[in-house]
């Protein structure tokens, strides 16, 4: 039996912003079903740009993008792929634009052609899945940063994506909210690529960690995660680390 095609495959991608120096030079990346990929990299390495290339918000200068076994060439290919790929934006205020939580979560399902009743049902179910029962009628601008992040995730999950692209999901979240977010990620059975500069979080959420550097993806054996020093609130007390 032939192996299933990768969910997402980038080969030989080159990209540069107008007037900027080349961001990617012959970048390759593959996400297979069931995989949880972490991507680290310094500021300006093009992590967000990479995601925007995958969903076709930006177009590469060279290279090929494939999703679910078929090449993505023109806008209509990308439109079809976006239904199955959920992209979590770095700033939740970009993602959430409706007056209330319920409407925002129902926006995607409605776009997929569901009836208002079905969309409402999908939205309510997704909110409950994330522990956000009772948030339906809340105005978005009354939510805290952590709540906004979870609602953003709900807007994606309501569309039942097969792949999640998470752009710095823990930015600006406190430890407790971060732990909650991690817990939810681990319960989901969706393949994802997560980008973050927080290696601690990547180690906990992803199975494989790559680094984005010099316009290419460096794999595990090239980056060797090896750190001993860390800080947390119990630094002076005896404690265990999960091993």
């Amino acid at each position: 039996m032939a192996a299933a095609p990768p969910l997402i495959k980038l080969s030989g991608i080159s990209f540069s912003y107008p007037g900027g120096k080349p961001l990617f030079k012959g970048l390759d990346l593959e996400l297979r079903a069931g995989e949880r990929l972490g991507l680290s990299g310094p500021n300006g390495a093009g992590k967000t740009t990479l995601f925007h290339l995958i969903v076709g918000l930006l177009k590469p200068a060279a290279g090929a993008i494939e999703a679910f076994g078929s090449p993505l060439k023109n806008e209509s290919d990308f439109v079809a792929a976006r239904r199955r790929i959920g992209l979590l934006f770095q700033d939740a205020d970009d993602q959430l634009f409706s007056p209330t939580v319920l409407e925002d979560v129902a926006f995607g399902p409605l776009n997929l052609g569901k009836t208002p009743a079905e969309a409402r049902e999908a939205a309510t179910r997704t909110l409950a899945l994330l522990g956000l029962q009772g948030f339906e009628e809340r105005p978005i601008h009354h939510l805290s940063g952590g709540e906004k992040k979870l609602v953003s995730l709900a807007t994606l999950l309501a569309m039942e994506p097969e792949v999640l692209l998470l752009d710095e999901p823990t930015n600006g979240l406190d430890d407790k909210t971060k732990a909650n977010f991690l817990d939810i990620l681990q319960r989901l059975e969706i393949s994802f690529i997560i980008i973050s500069h927080e290696l601690d979080f990547l180690e906990q959420s992803a199975r494989t960690i790559y680094a984005l550097a010099e316009g290419r993806i460096l794999s595990d054996d090239q980056i060797t995660l090896h750190r001993h020093v860390h800080a947390h609130p119990h630094g002076s007390l005896p404690h265990h680390h999960h091993d």
């Binding site: 969903v55 918000l57 439109v79 976006r82 992209l87 934006f89 970009d94 634009f97 926006f107």
Partner: peptide, 12 residues
């Protein structure tokens, strides 16, 4: 950015 996020969620 908001428009991009809307496109990603199937806005047409």
């Amino acid at each position: 950015q908001v428009h991009r996020a809307m496109l990603c969620r199937g806005f047409h």
